[in-house]
Write a protein that binds this DNA or RNA. Structure first.
Lengths: 410, 410
DNA sequence: ATCTTATTTTTGATAGTCGAAATTAATCGA
DNA sequence: TCGATTAATTTCGACTATCAAAAATAAGAT
């Protein structure tokens, strides 16, 4: 629904624009922000005056490296103490808690293994709450300005977006995680799909892809995808299923971790490739987790010419290629980014992948999207989660602040 | 890219809101529009004053049917003479030109058959230009306020959106239709995909679906789809391929009209069903057009228990079901509307359709979207085209008008 | 004729933007 | 060292939207 244009709206819009510019381009002078946003210098004075008074941003005098003639620019940066967010990355076998400040600096981090059977006995919400509480205990100063809890999850979100309908993490689905944790800690809780965060992270990492339409495909222990439509992450609402990995590839095909048959994942995730390579019957229930070394070893074997290994990766490439071809018939991005451990095996999949793409009318007629590899898989999910959460604080909490209100400094 | 908030922007936004409200709810009093938009009565006075001065809208005194106490409302409606649009529906074998006024009233219409071989010899752009010119000649008064030419097309739009990369209408692709006609007639030309118009028309027809996320699937001489995301038609930009009918269903499968193998259309469009029913080899090039009666006769045959006919519709249901299941793994609408001649055959497809949907993780876990039939196929494409075009004039031409400028009356 | 009621307009305050002019804070050059 | 130059920022006044509240309007009801 479109909003009414009034002074409130104008302020929100323009403050949001300024915060976004600072978020994207790091500390910057008023002039640069004016140029980036299109606002007049006069407006920038007014807007930043408010934000300074509210302690959202700080002037960083003497930090500019340019030494030209004229009055030196005064760089503006986020006030790191203005807010904090607790980020939780929840995966099969692993959970990581990070505390970041409003400037995007990592304050504290705890890594933990996650026993796959744990939630059969233990209460998943209580377990997560304890982890978050631990972060608060360890950082009492920062805890007072906690504004968000954001959790990266795998699986299918429910319609309300506060719980999971299904997840590869066993016994996690079915609980209203968001509402429970939100009530307990008194801050909004964001559940974010890993695939979508990947899209956000990629967009952040590569400025050339900002403002474009991009699909990012993750190949690894799962197959996931996220899309951006002209720079906006697609599927914030309930319409964004983006269960690309569980798109059907072959009716009645190989058994997937999700219990269905023939999903792309069942052929192209690590467990699927290994199952094919070792000639395990394709209806054998998948292993809960595959050690990274084992997947790596299979790539090596294929590199040495092992027929079964090569064939397994070809099948994976075919599954992903047909999946992408089907995606393209509905959504036609300018570029496709491939990320995750699978990138190192992509040369083994490429031939079948391209052949499958070529069987698609859209790819044939339009020439197909540009395919890029994102070898550096370092932390796109963490970065995406952080960026998403901080941007949410920017727009939802700080952009609407009327002039009078003052954010508490730490 | 987000726009700057300034008085210009506010005016555009609120004028757009008012025009949209009038477009959706027909002639309405200032009070009702104020309520519908959320604007204050004072603002409505100001905004409508400008619009009246610009001759965009007119007061329709004495038209209100309510006879309550108090000052009677003055209904506001569009000034029909403020603008006109020439709408062209181009299909295999048929072309129709309609002239509509700003109020959405049909002024004139010409129907013509289209020889499938015509564009092998004749120039397609010149042919269309002649049809449009004819409409102008027949309606000289209206022609002076022509503001748009909008063409409903089938096929794949090129990246610029002004031409087709591929079309089932032979020899239509490859020309820059939009730019050529736009230059010739001096007005913007909109190329609109039929599938997408269907989405727009459906949304307009059923107010309950407005503001929701809906996929509309057309089954008939083609298989097409359009989506709305929270009331917004998806894929205005170059990212919207929506070639649902040419999504691959079975690798290396039946030959499609587009030249590829295994498209959904090749199983579920009228020609595909007929081919299966008559046991024609699935690699036989499809007939250019199927008479409506022939498709209807096949439905009758299946109704009488003819095995081959029943099996053909089952295959079609399976193709559409798997296609939708694949779509759902990327985009999860609240409702799916099925439209077109195929609705009458849907009961024959339903079993396989549902079975295929059930094989999808998202549908299984979330319960699947609500499926509706739109039996009344009367004119959703014409309505969608008209609505889309008039809304475009509203927002692009008339919402931005500054107070001073005056629209010419006819 | 007067009262009541619903719609619409008028009035005055407010909160944003912007352009142009003024101010500020640095380097450059003599 | 001091004025000239330059670029960043602030100040000022005009403008254009909104909104709330009060006033005006146009009917039916009594």
């Amino acid at each position: 629904m479109r909003l009414i244009g009034d002074s409130d709206f104008v302020r929100r819009q323009n403050r949001g624009l300024v915060l976004t510019a600072l978020r994207n381009d790091g500390p910057a002078a008023r002039t640069s922000v004016a140029e980036a946003t299109g606002l007049s210098p006069a407006s920038l004075t007014a807007i930043t005056q408010d934000m300074l008074a509210q302690n959202l941003i700080t002037e960083m005098p003497g930090t500019s490296d340019v030494k030209l003639r004229g009055r030196p620019p005064v760089l503006l940066g986020f006030n790191r103490h203005a807010a904090h967010a607790c980020l939780v990355e929840l995966e099969v076998g692993r959970v990581r808690y990070s505390l970041v400040d409003y400037g995007g600096t990592l304050v504290d981090r705890v890594d933990a293994r996650l026993d796959p059977q744990l939630f059969e006995a233990a209460d998943s919400i209580a377990y997560l709450a304890e982890g978050i509480e631990e972060m608060r205990r360890r950082n009492p100063d920062e805890a007072v300005s906690l504004r968000r809890i954001a959790i990266s999850v795998q699986g299918v979100l429910d319609r309300s977006g506060t719980g999971l309908s299904w997840s590869p993490v066993r016994h996690l689905a079915g609980r209203d995680i968001g509402t429970a944790l939100g009530g307990q800690f008194g801050v909004p809780v964001l559940l974010c799909k890993r695939g979508r965060l990947l899209a956000e992270g990629t967009r952040w990492r590569d400025p050339a892809l900002r403002d474009r339409s991009v699909a990012t495909i993750f190949i690894g222990s799962t197959v996931a995808m996220g899309m951006t439509v002209r720079g906006q992450v697609f599927g914030r609402g309930e319409e964004g299923a983006t269960e690309f990995g569980h798109m059907n590839h072959a009716p009645g095909g190989a058994l997937c971790r999700c219990g269905m048959h023939g999903c792309i994942e069942a052929y192209a995730a690590d467990y699927g490739v290994l199952r094919t390579a070792y000639s395990v019957p394709e209806n054998t229930p998948p292993a809960p987790a595959v050690p990274a070394a084992e997947y790596e070893a299979l790539i090596q074997r294929a590199g040495r010419g092992d027929r079964a290994a090569i064939q397994a990766f070809r099948l994976a490439g075919r599954a992903i290629g047909y999946g992408l071809s089907r995606l393209l018939s509905v959504f036609d991005p300018e570029a496709v980014v491939i990320a995750g451990p699978g990138v190192r095996a992509f040369h083994l999949m490429e031939e079948e992948f391209s052949a499958a793409l070529g069987a698609s009318l859209v790819a044939k007629v339009k020439g197909g999207p540009e395919i890029r590899m994102l070898a550096d898989e370092s932390e796109p999910i963490f970065n995406g989660l952080m960026l998403h959460t901080l941007a949410d604080i920017d727009q939802a909490d700080f952009a609407p602040l009327p002039t009078v209100s003052i954010a508490r400094p730490a």
